[in-house]
Design a binder for these strands. Structure first.
Ligand SMILES: [Zn+2]
Ligand SMILES: [Zn+2]
Ligand SMILES: [Zn+2]
Ligand SMILES: [Zn+2]
Lengths: 155, 155
DNA sequence: CGTGCCTTGTTATGTTATAACATACGCTCT
DNA sequence: AGAGCGTATGTTATAACATAACAAGGCACG
């Protein structure tokens, strides 16, 4: 399992894979990847950095696709709800999913230098504490802050 | 190690322990637990639920201790920086630390029913993914959402 | 006393997010 | 075709969260 994002990779393939995966999943699940939703996913996919809702909105506005906050929040909500994107709580921002389609529990490595974010997987380490407390976990947010390889070299 | 918060416990002892622990730590580290800071810690300690900065501010205002956002944010910042409280990213809210004084990596069980939060500890499960990616972790946020024992019974 | 440092007071503004209601579009059933 | 319905979008307004910037007070130390 790799943490896509900091490594060099064929990013245009990375983008087109994600888009076609989203198209397939939407077709299969009777979901509509409308122009705004599709464009927001593309915007998120353009980099592996997290974007704020208003950053996304600014791009949409520049392209005439919408200028009011709910436009961005609705599209982002759709993408997050259906697993095409994730919300990064520590940044109040959003990032395209790096493992689209798969049912997965994501975890993130967030670089405080360049703001890139790598998605990986992690099994939640709270099972024991939760069962001791009688707590039923539904979802776990795991976000590590630190420095990516590039930002460690040139601080 | 227990996840304090959902269990029945002697809460007044829980509060006074935390306050005296904070006093000791401040005395030892030459930090000033001023009236506003102390009162904010007490407010957080009153329940095991997370409080938003403006909730805290409303209480301060009612007591004549301050009415402008920076007053609350400064006191909360002091408490968080010195380990007396934690920020819950998933809620944009704050909670008193349940293991004060100790140097620790907290993790949280957050009930979506009653909004109580239990603090526990967890070792971040990202060491391997991080070292593979060459990423230097500085801090990890772990927050599980779900239902506490009480809220599972009566949904 | 005067200087420096920390804390507090206050104004203003920036940033993130949603409620609520109106409109448009696509589909199906008759 | 036209009515009815559900989803998506457009728009207004406001709520909720957070910080920049500067002024003023308090206290310790030389
Ligand atoms: Zn890529
Ligand atoms: Zn970086
Ligand atoms: Zn308690
Ligand atoms: Zn509960």
């Amino acid at each position: 399992m790799t943490a896509t994002g900091f490594d060099r990779h064929d990013h245009s393939a990375c983008v087109s894979d994600a888009i076609s995966s989203a198209e397939q999943h939407c077709a299969a699940a009777d979901l509509r990847l409308t122009p705004v939703r599709r464009r927001v996913l593309e915007i998120l996919l353009e980099s592996h950095a997290a974007l704020g809702a208003y950053d996304v909105l600014a791009r949409l506005d520049a392209e005439g696709l919408g200028s009011k906050p709910p436009v961005a929040y609705r599209a982002l909500g759709f993408l997050v709800d259906n697993g095409f994107a994730h919300r990064i709580e520590g940044l109040n921002a959003f990032i395209a999913c790096a493992h689209p389609g798969a049912d997965h529990a994501p975890a993130f490595l967030i670089c405080r230098g360049c703001h890139k974010v790598a998605e990986t997987r992690a099994t939640a380490p709270l099972g024991q504490a939760a069962s001791q407390a009688g707590f039923a976990i539904e979802q776990t947010v795991i976000e590590a802050q630190g420095l990516c390889p590039a930002c460690q070299v040139q601080p």
